[in-house]
Design a binder for these strands. Structure first.
Length: 281
DNA sequence: CTCCTGTCCTGCCGGC
DNA sequence: TGCCGGCAGGACAGGA
């Protein structure tokens, strides 16, 4: 499930192949993902130069010479694969969108579940696109701090787990890194967000930044491996403390010794939450 | 306004 | 072995 670190890793992996390149050919292998591709997208992209790439939340943008941007979301199962000119291009099932560049490199978007998105919007107006207009701060920016988070939490009665998934408060967190950051902070995911103290918000902010930075660093190293292997840029497996670890011992406390059965799995707002009831209070 | 639930989509996994 | 039901979840729509 691509969250901010995975999106950042994919974008960084694409940059050396795409920045400064002209798009020479576009293939759309179906009319839509979950939403239709923008009308006439192929014609709008052909001959355009890719000036830069940048990320916002779980989206990243290809900024083009015509002052428009292609906005990409990886959804649940989206990934990119690079085929340089010397590589045999074997089309795969669910290859939905393929850009060919002047260098003859192919950039292939593959997404089995089709929860991904490809959008198109004027570059200067991206902040007003509906994907971004209500989006909260970047978690790795300085303005994401304990005071900001504490203030944001005052307007909601949701549990803190649910509030952290709300992209209007902070952008780019998904189920995995929210569970991991709450675990690292020692905060119970069921706690009402508006009842979390400023001090704990400060601790939580530091935990969020730490888990994201660690994951991006892990992505950077996995990226090198992938690049050597087959050019696949997508979701990669990290070492998690609680996510998917229900029934396992908590690495940080003696909950198993006390027979509280280690990591628990509960459902909040229809999503799985993993936590240690002893460490997280 | 906020909050909650259902929807989309396919691959995978466990049970029979 | 093979089939089938259930589950995974990010964004969004619609209802309470």
């Amino acid at each position: 499930m691509p969250e901010l670190p995975e999106v950042e890793t994919v974008m960084r992996g694409l940059m050396p192949y795409m920045v400064g390149q002209q798009i020479t050919h576009v293939a759309q292998n179906r009319p839509n993902l979950r939403v239709p591709f923008p009308p006439g997208l192929t014609d709008k992209l052909v001959d355009q130069k890719i000036l830069s790439l940048n990320r916002r939340g779980k989206y990243f943008m290809l900024n083009l010479g015509n002052n428009y941007s292609v906005i990409v979301h990886l959804g649940m199962s989206g990934s990119f694969k690079i085929y340089t000119d010397n590589m045999l291009f074997v089309p795969q099932k669910h290859d939905h969108f393929i850009l060919t560049l002047a260098s003859k490199t192919r950039v292939v978007f593959n997404d089995p579940r089709r929860f991904g998105m490809v959008l198109y919007h004027p570059s200067k107006d991206l902040d007003r696109h509906k994907a971004f207009i209500n989006m909260g701060v970047e978690p790795l920016d300085l303005e994401f701090n304990g005071v900001y988070l504490h203030r944001s939490f005052q307007s909601t009665s949701s549990p803190i787990k649910t509030a952290l998934l709300d992209q209007r408060i902070v952008a780019g967190l998904g189920n995995i890194y929210v569970c991991e950051a709450l675990y690292l902070s020692g905060i119970n995911p069921k706690t009402k967000a508006h009842k979390v103290s400023l001090k704990r918000c400060h601790i939580l902010v530091n935990a969020i930044k730490a888990v994201l930075i660690k994951a991006i660093e892990a992505g950077g190293s996995s990226l090198k491996d992938h690049r050597q292997a087959d050019g696949q840029l997508g979701y990669f497996q990290h070492q998690f403390s609680v996510y998917g670890k229900q029934g396992k011992a908590c690495p940080d406390c003696d909950c198993e010794i006390e027979r509280t059965h280690g990591i628990k799995r509960i459902i909040q707002a229809g999503r799985s939450t993993f936590y240690c009831p002893r460490k997280q209070r």
